[in-house]
Amino acid sequence: MRHLVIRRVIQTLLIMLTVSALLFAVFDSDQFRKKIAVAELGNFGAATLSDSDYQAWIVSKGLDQSFPARYVTWLNHVVHGDLGVSIEKDVAVSTLLKESLSSTAVLAFYVFLIMIPVSLMLGVLAGMKEGSILDRVISVIAVFTTSIPQIATAALLTVVLALGLRWVPTKSAMIDGFSFRELLLPLLTILIYEIGYLVRMTRSAMADVMSSQYIRTALLKGLPYRQVVLKHALRNALVVPVTLILLELTGLLSQVVVVEVFFQYHGFGRMLFDAANFGDIQVIQAATLVAVCVAVASQLLSDIAYVLLNPRLRVA
């Protein structure tokens, strides 16, 4: 088991190094450098930047070094939390990131808080008796909710809950501080898809387990059905959903882009989107790096959870 985990940690480190090198290489090109130079030197555009000014800037920034040297310098900065300065807002990127990530974390917290119990319960109920009416109802609804793209969910929810019923505001900018009512629409938009997806996965894992031979053994031992489900089935059926829940941390980073933009919620996704539209390179680079870190960490966690939950891997 230790061997497996160590192997995965090393792989993760390798991936992080590769990704950071890739990101650095992409944003190290002249095209992007000039943009930063223009911003820092206070010029109005790449066209007005004189060549000598640009060269002087490059030397002053130490960018005339060899690529590996520049990469190491950059990496050193990154590790010490220096992610550059936003061109658009003229603030340290790390400050921006801190604010936006904490807003997104609030959203993510509520997503997981509701998603985990609801989807696991519904999935287990559906998978327990494959083909039962409950199973069919849950499955059909789940297919439906996973088929609605989030822009459509967001639009439909706005129409119904905000425009029709007027229960919640249409936007979630939270100008007057945090308000749970404003959080509701983005939260629901994410939940509708996520719960559907997890329910489907849990259901199929549960259905597989329930048709396995060891469940037959347990039933034919004369154990009560409740005990068979709770003790014999769940332990095996929840392995996959648990690892998937951890992986959903990555999925969430994608989904918040759409949801936050639609509802004007000031989180990580919104920040990335604004940066992309403005061409705020330092922010894009830093945000991508952070996103990859979170994603890789969630993959690592999910792999470790899989090993821990699986006696075959845990006890060799």
Binding site: V19, V257, T288, A291
Partner: peptide, 22 residues
């Protein structure tokens, strides 16, 4: 597998934004 893992470590939307920006 390694190339795949590197690409998979980007959240999808982040990867899209990055690719389309570059």
């Amino acid at each position: 597998t390694f190339v795949g893992n590197v690409l998979l470590s980007f959240p999808v939307m982040v990867l899209f934004i990055l690719v389309l920006n570059v």
